[in-house]
Write a protein that binds this DNA or RNA. Structure first.
Length: 601
RNA sequence: GGGGGAUUAGCUCAGUUGGAUAGAGCGUCGGCCUCCGAAGCCGAAGGUCGUGGGUUCGAGCCCCGCAUCCCCCA
């Protein structure tokens, strides 16, 4: 059977993301090691062995080879370079100056040509399990306005929009979880040429539906998709719509402000909103461009720029923004000679509005084809007295859609495109989100529809979710035996002696650092990769020891420690998935239809 | 012509402000279910990190040239 019905039936768990802003900042092991080294440097500085004005950045890394320990640092190399001395001497001095807290390290060693390696004691690692899901508040309450998607209401969203939508939504979740005050907005371009063309397209299709036209007068650049006919059919079924289509387009109002454009906007926004809802994407506010025209903000902004000399009128009567040679750009038209403002003018007013609302950081997610707008947006913010650095544009590269390796032509005007709605229905919300979030925004990606669907059974997202469900299954079994998941106790770490257990503890301890880094860099894909890593370790732990060292055993001490451990794995998986907007099912089972076919005898 | 991005395993992609023997998923090949969920695990094969220079103790990462692809502007 086709793959449509092959998706696993799953019960959704309640989102279990708990962020306590008052909680003490969960300290990351890297930070602890870094502090120790930093103090050692101070010691050497006080002893006159390091120049007063020398401040090296201390980069703690995780060596790839296990025998090097848990952490490595090339500080001796850097110090040797800066002081023109022997790396080994520097390393020995640093080691002598290290005063680590009792019990933190099992070993600190020097490795040529100039590394310091740290082996952290098991108990110290296990100590981190106390608050493994506590995320550091790196955002410090900064007010962030995150604007994304913002597709014109001239048609359904396509897959490219989906990438930006999923990315933006995930960034919002990640940043909120790490102490940023994020508001998400969708800016609706409901004014201008494209809206006018949309209205005209609807008008033409309406006339066709009424038998007033054979379609030969449909504009060359009109929106040709079937959805326009569908909306037109609804439109002419209303008295107002019928009346509008019976008149010439020029007679029913402004080209971008008339019954046709209003109906199209209203209907298509609903379509867009339904799709976003189906993708689990939330916006705090929908901001329409028209409000800027109506409340005078746009005109006031233009006037302000004129008054302050950042804009001028040319001979033809158009108003241009002065780029003042910045970024080698030409001056840009804000108001045409005809008096009609451009999208650029509205964008300036919108961004001014954002900054005036007290947001100190404006993040925009744009398609890579808009990168050319960045210099002029920054310049306009600066002209209006805002710090241009507050604008941070994340460019999302194009998604090339293929079906079975063959490129699918995409064009809203031509009407030939696969909608995001269709992809969500075919592939599933969780899989679509995870697939997008498994790639960094900054690189082009290929989205093969057949592959996304055909792989749905082996999709990475199910691998992660399966880990969560697997733990849930263990916990259900324990509960059935009357065994509760215990809280943290120091002694538990001594019982978790399997190499897979030690590896899991270390992986869990990374969670906060990964999320904090993802938040700072606005790159949620690091979380997706982390979850893949973590769950891989869990599956290995589970399967390797399935016959010998079970979680639930006759040994109550081991059972308690292991239940605690796997419950932490589950929490981190659930929280990590929640940060990506992906569900964490308690149960995932193949339906009867999906059982692998038995071997033919 | 100017600008942005990309180039890493057969395919799709990671690679954390320059660090030790470059990774994952999928695909391929070979193993593992009486026993907490096999949507799993274990192993193997697979690489001149597009190319040529440069910077230095050290480059997939930084600088310059070139090639190819995507996008924007003129």
């Amino acid at each position: 059977m086709p793959f449509g019905g092959a998706r696993p039936k799953m019960r959704r768990a309640k989102a279990c993301l708990r962020i306590d802003p008052e909680a003490p900042r969960g300290e990351i092991m890297e930070a602890i090691v870094e502090r120790v080294l930093s103090e050692a440097m101070e010691q050497l500085r006080a002893a006159g062995k390091v120049p007063q004005d020398l401040h090296l950045s201390i980069v703690i890394e995780r060596p790839k080879r296990e025998e090097f320990g848990d952490f490595g640092c090339a500080l001796p190399l850097a110090l040797a370079k800066a002081t023109r001395r022997n790396p080994m001497e520097c390393g020995k001095e640093l080691m002598a100056a290290i005063q680590a807290p009792e019990g933190l390290f099992d070993a600190v060693t020097f490795a040529p040509p100039g590394y310091l390696n740290f082996k952290v004691a098991t108990a110290a690692w296990f100590d981190r399990m106390k608050d493994v899901t506590t995320l550091p508040a790196v955002g410090a309450g900064e007010k962030v306005l995150l604007e994304f998607v913002s597709a014109n209401p001239t048609g359904p969203l396509h897959v490219g929009h989906g990438r930006g939508a999923v990315l933006g939504d995930a960034i919002a979740r990640v940043m909120r979880a790490t102490g940023y005050a994020v508001q998400t907005e969708y800016y609706v371009n409901d004014v201008g040429n494209q809206m006018a063309m949309m209205g005209l397209s609807l008008h033409c299709r309406g006339r066709e539906a009424l038998g007033l036209s054979d379609g030969s007068d449909f504009p060359e650049n009109g929106y040709k998709g079937q959805y326009v006919r569908d909306v037109a059919a609804e439109f002419v079924a209303t008295a107002e719509g019928k009346a509008a289509c019976e008149q010439p387009y020029e007679d029913i109002g402004a080209r971008d402000d008339n019954p046709c454009t209003h109906f199209a906007e209203q209907r298509l926004l609903v379509v867009i909103q339904d799709t976003l809802k189906a993708g689990g994407i939330h916006f705090d506010r929908w901001f329409t461009e028209r409000t800027l025209h109506q409340n005078g903000a746009l005109a006031a902004t233009v006037q302000r720029l004129l008054d302050q000399g950042h804009a001028y009128r040319d001979e033809a009567g158009a108003t241009l923004f002065r780029m003042e040679g910045k970024a080698d750009e030409d001056d840009r038209v804000m108001v045409r000679a005809s008096g009609v403002p451009t999208y650029f003018a509205a964008d300036i007013a919108y961004h001014d509005d954002k900054a005036r609302r007290g947001f100190t950081r404006l993040i925009n997610i744009w398609g890579a084809d808009h990168h050319g707008y960045i210099p002029r947006m920054k310049a306009s913010l600066e002209a209006l007295g805002h710090d241009p650095a507050c604008l941070q544009v994340l460019l999302v590269q194009m998604v090339t859609l293929t079906r079975g390796g063959v490129a699918v032509p995409m064009g809203k005007r031509s009407g030939e495109f696969v909608t995001l709605q269709e992809v969500l229905e075919e592939v599933g919300q969780d899989a679509v989100r995870f697939l997008f979030l498994l790639r960094k925004a900054d690189s082009q990606m290929e989205f093969d529809l057949d592959l996304a669907k055909s792989q749905s059974m082996e999709n990475p997202v199910y691998y992660v979710q399966y880990g969560h469900a697997r733990v849930a299954s263990i916990l259900r079994k324990a509960a059935a035996q009357g065994i509760a998941v215990p809280g943290w106790e120091a002694g538990m770490g001594d019982v978790l002696t399997l190499p897979e257990e030690a590896a899991l503890v270390k992986d869990l301890a990374r969670f906060a650092a990964v999320v904090a880094s993802a938040a700072r860099r606005c790159e949620p894909h690091h979380i997706a990769f982390y979850l893949m890593d973590l769950v891989k370790g869990f599956h290995a732990y589970y399967t390797r020891n399935a016959h010998t060292e079970k979680v639930i055993s006759a040994d109550p001490v081991k059972t308690a420690a292991r239940l605690f451990l796997v419950a932490r794995v589950q929490s981190v998986l659930a929280e990590g998935l929640a940060l990506l907007g992906v569900s964490a099912p308690e149960e995932m089972r193949l339906t009867a239809d999906d059982e692998p076919a038995s071997e033919p005898d």
